[in-house]
Measured scan of single mutants.
Amino acid sequence: YETDHQDYCEVCQQGGEIILCDTCPRAYHLVCLDPELEKAPEGKWSCPHCEKE
């Protein structure tokens, strides 16, 4: 399936195990989030940028 999400972390610009925001195209490593997450959230997730909106 096709997605318009970026394939690198918004914070460190590296690829790998990233989680995708359900609201925007941004993607993040769990450890690059502040506060960092230990595991990917279940269900819908909005990144810090979208949470501020």
Rank of each mutant, 00 (worst) to 15 (best):
C12M: 02
C32H: 01
E10L: 14
K52V: 04
L37Q: 06
V31H: 11
L37S: 14
L20A: 13
E53Y: 05
I18N: 11
E42S: 05
K39H: 11
Q13F: 04
C12I: 00
D22W: 03
Y28P: 01
H5D: 01
E38F: 09
P48R: 10
Y28E: 02
G43N: 14
L30R: 12
G15E: 07
H49M: 05
G15P: 02
H49F: 15
P25V: 07
C21M: 01
C12P: 00
Q6S: 09
E42F: 03
V31K: 04
C47H: 05
V31P: 13
C21E: 00
A27W: 06
E38C: 05
W45E: 06
C21K: 01
E42G: 07
Q6E: 06
K52C: 03
L30H: 06
E17T: 07
E17Q: 03
K44H: 03
C21F: 00
K39G: 11
G43S: 12
T3F: 15
I19E: 09
Q13M: 10
P25Q: 08
K44F: 04
A27M: 04
P48C: 11
A27C: 08
E38Q: 10
H49I: 01
P48E: 10
T3Q: 11
T3A: 12
C47N: 00
C12T: 01
C50L: 02
C50G: 02
C47L: 01
K44Y: 02
I18G: 11
E42K: 02
K52D: 09
E53A: 05
L33I: 05
E36R: 03
C32S: 01
E53W: 02
I19R: 13
P48S: 10
C24E: 00
I18R: 11
S46V: 10
T23C: 06
C12V: 01
C9K: 01
C50A: 02
L20Q: 15
E2L: 15
E36K: 12
W45N: 06
L37Y: 05
P48Q: 08
C47Y: 00
A27T: 12
D4L: 12
G43F: 07
C12L: 00
Y1E: 15
H29F: 00
H5V: 15
D7C: 02
A40C: 03
S46A: 07
G16N: 15
E36A: 09
Q13D: 06
R26N: 09
E17V: 03
H29Q: 00
R26C: 10
K39D: 05
D4H: 09
